Simulated scan of single mutants.
Amino acid sequence: MSTGSRTTTALDGGHARVDGDHAPSGGPHARVDLTVDAADENRARWAVVDTWTLVRRELTHYRRQPVMILWQLGFPIISVLLYGYVFSGAMKPPGGESGGYRDFLMAGMFVMTMSFGFMNTAAAVVAGASKGVIDRFRSMPMEPAAVVAGRGVADLLVACAELAILAATALAMGWRSGGGLTATVGAFGLLLLLRFSLIWVGVWLGLLVPSPEAAGGLYAVAFPLTMISSIFVPTGSMPGWLGTVASWNPISSTGTAARELFGNPVARDGSWIQDHALLMAVVWPLAITAVFLPLAARRFRQLGR
């Protein structure tokens, strides 16, 4: 997968990778004078090279299959236009008139796009597994962790493109961020942090479901996750128990924190989780990553047994 040949040699019970051009010579009993630190550094270098190779492979798919770009990048635009114009006349943001609903909505649309992204991750992973791509990767001299890491980095780059296109669409509709440059960059950083954490949920689910057809059923998870939140309406407008569930949805914390940083209307219900939305917009993604990244890695290892 990457340039240059590699060979593996035993080293104190571990493994070290060295370039084929510098392979040890002198017979079968020759020893390689490498320290453990040097071996680890060499392995880490190849892991980075393998990861970048797989990132380039994933991004090449978008160039060769333009339909994927139209769907993944076109869906956010259609969603913004639909919710922003069709529903805005009947919706009122907290403390504002109906015309200001788009200011309240936009942060939620950013969050929804990042949340639905895990479906694309899961679909890509299960498609690769069903076609035997992952098995072929296992037969190559490459770092196993690069398969998962390459998927994550590629999806994060696509998420950046989605956010850029969505933000351009929002600006064309008249939305503005009043929070200043630093706050605006921070809001987009929180959105990407949420997407980063959900990548590992998508990888885990993609390795778990048996077929691409079964992956379609994951929408039953995605829709409640996004709808039962503060993306479209304030949680205070919901029945008490449902409002509590929506407030503690990690997506709601990111949405509320983004609205605060963007200087957009924010709905307050007096709950602790909403009063500390900025803190929880960091804590929730870190907790999700801490749970699902190891699960995804373990599931990947189990497939090879």
Rank of each mutant, 00 (worst) to 15 (best):
G180C: 09
I231A: 06
V209D: 06
L207K: 01
I231Y: 04
W248C: 03
P234N: 03
L205Y: 04
L242W: 03
T182Q: 12
V203G: 01
L198K: 00
G217A: 01
G217K: 09
V203N: 02
L218M: 05
C160A: 15
L156Q: 12
P210C: 12
A187R: 01
F232N: 03
A214S: 10
L242I: 02
L208Q: 14
L194N: 09
S229Y: 06
V147K: 08
L207Y: 04
G132Q: 02
W241K: 08
G206V: 01
A167Q: 04
A159V: 09
D135S: 15
V221H: 08
G180T: 02
G216A: 03
F223L: 15
C160W: 05
L163E: 00
M140E: 10
P239G: 06
V245G: 03
T235A: 08
A149W: 05
E143K: 14
L225M: 14
G132S: 10
P239N: 11
A168M: 01
R151C: 15
A215I: 08
A222C: 12
A215C: 07
A154M: 10
A161T: 00
V147G: 04
T244M: 08
V233K: 04
L242M: 10
M238T: 09
P234G: 03
P224F: 00
L225C: 10
S237C: 12
W204C: 06
M173S: 13
V158C: 05
L171E: 13
A159H: 07
G174N: 09
G236P: 01
W200G: 07
Y219F: 15
E213H: 12
F223C: 13
L157C: 03
D135N: 15
L163G: 04
W241V: 15
I228L: 14
S211H: 05
T182Y: 12
R138N: 14
G178F: 07
G206F: 04
P234R: 00
P239M: 04
M142T: 10
L207E: 08
A187G: 01
G240C: 11
L198T: 04
